[in-house]
Every structure is written in structure tokens, then in C-alpha cells.
């Protein structure tokens, strides 16, 4: 039976009034910048200006025809999927380990979180020294154990630079995945594992049949958030390589920055930002679809 409508005439008005500050803030912080960027993307804006003559879709045409955009797009996919895939795999593995009861588990959990707490600038500078070609500790250690005979060019070769920034990104952000997954792991009813033990299930079967289905919505949500955040991550790449060598690590956010603050082509930068937003929107739609399917299975 449908519930009777108990709203009083003033309730709806009160609800709108209560919501209005949040709506105003959302308009100010989200809608206004978005509309501004859309407007800028259709103008030719010179150095020091915030508006200029209307040029229609010419900025979009120029961006899409620019080989630098296609290169940045490819780099962005490598950066995002490389980082997120490793973060999720590593984060899941460590969350499973930390979910096991062992001595000093609390200390281990705290230590794992450390990279996430270190400011990005500090982390990047430290890694810079570790990657140094002459005095870098990474090359020193790898050569000391005989894994390499010549120093690796971590940030100085077009083939290694992206791997190196992904390495730093993963180190910095995998703790977020650990935190997110540990919460859901601890919420899985222990009775299900006990019943599986009685039935003689192996560890892999328990993980596949009990753990994974339980954590899947959170796992996908975490992957979704990490994808969004990694997609528009700017500071790590810019501070590590500035988008180089040549343009080997120039991702879309770095390209937007270069167009806006090096080339001073704000219209083109806005167009690139909007294309980036559209690509991210498609990715989000795919993730949300997957999440719905995972939730429906539960």
C-alpha cells in the first residue's frame, strides 16, 4: 500500500530554502567555471585577456588536428591505465595481507599509509634524487645486486620516463586503495569463510566466491575515483619531467597547461580541456555501467 502523503504545504518550500546555499555554491564552483571554459573555447584569446573574438569551433579543429594532442591523448591513457591497474592490484594485495591477523598489524597499516601523507612536492624531489644518473640510490642498489650493469635513465629516456612517473604515482597513491578496500574486507561476515572451510574450499576459491563479490562494488568505485583523479593529475608529471623528454610524458593536463601558460593560447587550452572532459565522461559512463552490473549481481 502506498504511503500517504504527509507533506505539509510549507515543507517543500522549507526544503528548497535549506538546499539553496548548497545549490548556490554548486553553481558558483561548478556551473560558472564550466560555462566560462565553454565560452573561452570558442574565442581567440590573446595574452593577458580573458575574452576575445568569437571563432566558433576553430580552436577544437586546431586542437584535434595537432599531433601534440594525439600524442598527449595516448600518453594520458598509458599514464591512467598503467597507474590505476598497478595501484588496484597492489592495493588489493596489500589490503588482503593487512586483513590477516598478525603481530604489529597496526604498525604495518600505519607505515603503508605513509606515502599518501607525504606532500607531493617533497615526494617528487626525493624521487628525483633517487633517480639521479650519477648519485641516484636506485641505480646504485640495482648495480650493487647485479641486476643492471649500466645506470638506468629513469627520467632521461623517452622509453623509461613514463614508467618512472607511473612508479612514483603508484607509490604515492596505492595506500588510498588499501584504505578503501580494508574497510569493506573487514565487513565480510566471517561465517561465510567458516562455512567454506567446512566445505573444503581452497584459499583461491574463497577469494573468488566470497571476497571478490563482496568487495567488487567498492573495488570498482575506488577504481573509478582513482581513474578520475589520475586522469587530471598534473603535479607529479609536471614536477618530475615537465612533460619531457621531448613530449614523452606530456599528458592532456600538461598539454592544457602548456597551451594556456606557455603558448598563452587560452582559447585552445579551453578547447583541449573540454575534449578531455568529454573523454573522461565516456570513461565514467563505462565504469558506472560496470558498477551497476556488479551491484545487481549482489
Amino acid at each position: 500500500m502506498a504511503e500517504p502523503n504527509t507533506d505539509l504545504p510549507g515543507d517543500r518550500l522549507l526544503a528548497y530554502l535549506a538546499l539553496s546555499p548548497s545549490i548556490a555554491i554548486l553553481i558558483l564552483l561548478v556551473a560558472v567555471p564550466m560555462v566560462t571554459v565553454f565560452a573561452m573555447s570558442m574565442q581567440h584569446i590573446s595574452l593577458g585577456e580573458l575574452s576575445g573574438p568569437f571563432v566558433g569551433l576553430r580552436n577544437f579543429e586546431r586542437v584535434l588536428a595537432d599531433p601534440a594532442f594525439l600524442n598527449a591523448l595516448g600518453n594520458t591513457f598509458v599514464w591512467v591505465f598503467g597507474s590505476v591497474a598497478i595501484e588496484m592490484a597492489l592495493g588489493l594485495g596489500i589490503a588482503l595481507l593487512l586483513n590477516i591477523d598478525f603481530r604489529m598489524r597496526g604498525i604495518a597499516r600505519a607505515v603503508i599509509l605513509t606515502p599518501y601523507l607525504i606532500p607531493t612536492v617533497v615526494a617528487v624531489l626525493t624521487w628525483h634524487y633517487m633517480f639521479n644518473d650519477i648519485i641516484g640510490v636506485l641505480n646504485y642498489l640495482l648495480m650493487a645486486v647485479g641486476l643492471i650493469s649500466q645506470p638506468l635513465l629513469w627520467l632521461n629516456s623517452t622509453s623509461m620516463a613514463m614508467f618512472s612517473v607511473i612508479l612514483v604515482g603508484v607509490w604515492k597513491f596505492f595506500p588510498f586503495v588499501v584504505i578503501a578496500l580494508m574497510g569493506i574486507l573487514q565487513a565480510i561476515p566471517q561465517e561465510q569463510y567458516e562455512a567454506a572451510d567446512i566445505d573444503g574450499a581452497s584459499a583461491l576459491q574463497k577469494f573468488w566466491r566470497i571476497t571478490l563479490p563482496h568487495i567488487m562494488p567498492v573495488f570498482l568505485l575506488t577504481a573509478l575515483l582513482r581513474t578520475i583523479w589520475t586522469f587530471h593529475k598534473f603535479d607529479i608529471i609536471y614536477l618530475m619531467t615537465g612533460g619531457g623528454p621531448i613530449d614523452a610524458t606530456t599528458t592532456l593536463p600538461v598539454l592544457v597547461y602548456q597551451q594556456g601558460f606557455v603558448d598563452f593560447a587560452l582559447g585552445r587550452a579551453a578547447a583541449t580541456a573540454i575534449i578531455t572532459f568529454a573523454i573522461l565522461g565516456v570513461l565514467l559512463a563505462v565504469y558506472l555501467h560496470l558498477m551497476k552490473r556488479a551491484e545487481a549481481r549482489q
Partner: peptide, 11 residues
């Protein structure tokens, strides 16, 4: 001259 320089000059 690259042959006589430190390997990391590209940054």
C-alpha cells in the same frame, strides 16, 4: 659530445 657526458643529460 653525448658519448663523453653523464647518461642523464636529457633532463
Amino acid at each position: 659530445m653525448k658519448a663523453y657526458a653523464p647518461p642523464g643529460i636529457a633532463s
